[in-house]
Design a protein around this nucleic acid. Structure first.
Length: 196
DNA sequence: AGCGTGATCTTT
DNA sequence: AAGATCACGCTG
């Protein structure tokens, strides 16, 4: 299966969030271990109007990766426990990223079960903190790209518009009015929406 | 519905 | 230096 190239990640952030749905994220580990997941839920973060975007006020030590080339991984640590995976978007020096919020396991499920401490398929990667744990991703992977052997995304058919849901982003307090969450309707691996 | 957990950012 | 917040997940 063909891999997504640089050009794909140059799409405007919101469009990228939509087009990433259905694509196959691949993470390779030493020992011929390959983990794959179908992306089923994303969120867009970009622009200086978006107060929920880490970079809306400018560059800092944490968010500087958001200013790098599209297709770079931006990973940050939050709530004292969780690593969240983003794919950088927008041209270099313009901050933007797509948060990967949920995936459907495609390959390497046993490895994921071990990492996650559960064997329920719909609980392995059905949340942004869950999927990084299932894929053994942490801040050491920050700033790596999707153009090497360790991380890449395989192309797959785009999800038709009528099967895509849209909503406010989950777990933020600012910019609640922006409907920048995208997900595959009725897919059981989409995260449970947090209340409040 | 409540809490752990620690880095980051804002305010003093 | 101190306080608030936080793109979450788990328990109950």
């Amino acid at each position: 299966m063909e891999r997504l190239e640089q050009q794909f990640y140059e799409l405007p952030t919101l469009e990228l969030a939509e087009k990433l749905l259905g694509k196959i994220f691949v993470r390779t580990l030493p020992g011929n271990i390959q983990l794959k997941g179908k992306i089923v839920e994303t969120e867009a973060y970009f622009g200086n109007m978006d107060e929920a975007c880490h970079a809306w006020r400018g560059k800092t030590a944490r968010n500087h990766v958001m200013f790098q080339k599209p297709g770079t991984l931006y990973i940050f640590f939050t709530y004292g426990n969780h690593y969240l995976l983003n794919i950088v978007s927008e041209p270099e020096n313009i901050p933007g990223a797509v948060l990967i919020r949920a995936m459907e396991p495609v390959e390497g499920e046993l490895f994921m079960q071990e990492k996650r401490g559960t064997n329920l398929s719909t609980n392995l990667m059905s949340g942004p903190g869950k999927l990084t744990r299932a894929l053994a991703i942490d801040c050491s992977n920050n700033e790596q790209t999707l153009f090497g052997e360790e991380f890449f995304i395989e192309n797959a058919a785009s999800v038709p518009e009528h099967l895509i849901g849209t909503s406010s982003r989950v777990g933020i307090s600012k910019s609640r009015e922006l409907q920048w969450r995208k997900f595959i309707l009725n897919n059981p691996h989409v995260s449970k929406v947090r209340v409040g």
